[in-house]
Nucleic acid binder design. Structure first.
Lengths: 160, 160
DNA sequence: TTCAAAACTAACCTTTTTGTATGTACTTAC
DNA sequence: GTAAGTACATACAAAAAGGTTAGTTTTGAA
């Protein structure tokens, strides 16, 4: 038997993900673009400055705090522990602390975190693969001053 | 020789994207995790709070400023124009202003922007599809106070 | 004996981001 | 005649993010 129906609470959250097929795109799109969509908060956490890099770093396997700190170059201890706690609270990774001294703590992705990390890395890989194009496109625009909003609007005409 | 060498400057950026195959994963991974990697800045722009939503909104086609403002619910005029300018400067979207009054300005994704938006949407879709799991995973952790770093370390043993 | 390493926390400060409110120039709708 | 809409800029204020330093506790290495 399926005890899925058993807990009963929060039907709303469970309803939306079930919608798949033709309508799903429009419905889901509408959700994220809505100000009160809970996905927005999750999106913020996962796309946070250090969150992205931690997820990517942990894809290679479990890692200790200080190893992560060295791997994710540039992160401070404070931001790393803050980021790890946020991701842990969201259920994207697990923390395993061994009661030894000096402390030994391992972090590893949960199945959920692994799925998220995969997607994040796909996006990150695209950026790295295309960083040349991107930088060139940027340079093609910054050198020349692009027309100001009012600059081209010297001669105004009524909207047709 | 090929005229690729002609401009001389920034060989480095062009070199990396050319690396593909077995080594690419390790190399690229290493780049983003390096503090001075230019991809990090691009990543910040694309994963900025409103940048993600603007890219997704523009995937359906060109849109005017005020239409975007209504579609991306919750964004202020200031942040929207700031976000649009940043994405435009990076070459992810184009701005087309018609010299009429009241002003009429259209924004649309460039080919580059389209590729980026696709990846971003894939990730966003995953979040929306799994928001139920995510929220449940979070709730499973927050109610109970998870062990403090020192809490479980009452009896300390030398690291083995 | 002093230092470094481990994995943090807490306090303090700076920087960045975001929001709010206002103004602009002109037109259309009420 | 007044309000609303258009696409912003600008100034100021609040909030969030980030950095730096110091401190904890114990071990092992120099």
């Amino acid at each position: 038997m399926n005890n899925d129906e058993a807990h009963g609470a929060k039907r709303d959250e469970q309803l939306a993900p079930r919608v798949d097929g033709i309508l799903s795109s429009a419905v889901r799109r509408g959700e994220l673009l809505a100000a009160d969509c809970p996905s927005r908060e999750v999106l913020r956490h996962l796309t946070s400055r250090w969150g992205v890099l931690v997820l990517i770093a942990l894809e290679d396997g479990p890692m200790r705090f200080s190893d992560l700190r060295r791997k994710v170059s540039g992160v401070s201890e404070k931001m790393l522990s803050q980021t790890l706690q946020a991701l842990e609270a969201d259920g994207f990774l697990d923390r395993h602390s061994r009661p030894v001294v000096p402390p030994h703590v391992d972090y590893n992705l949960t199945p959920l975190g692994h799925e998220a990390a995969e997607r994040v890395r796909l996006f990150a890989d695209w950026i790295e693969d295309n960083i040349g194009r991107i930088l060139r496109a940027r340079e093609a625009r910054t050198p020349e001053d692009k027309g100001h909003p009012t600059a081209g609007a010297d001669r105004l005409q009524p909207a047709e």
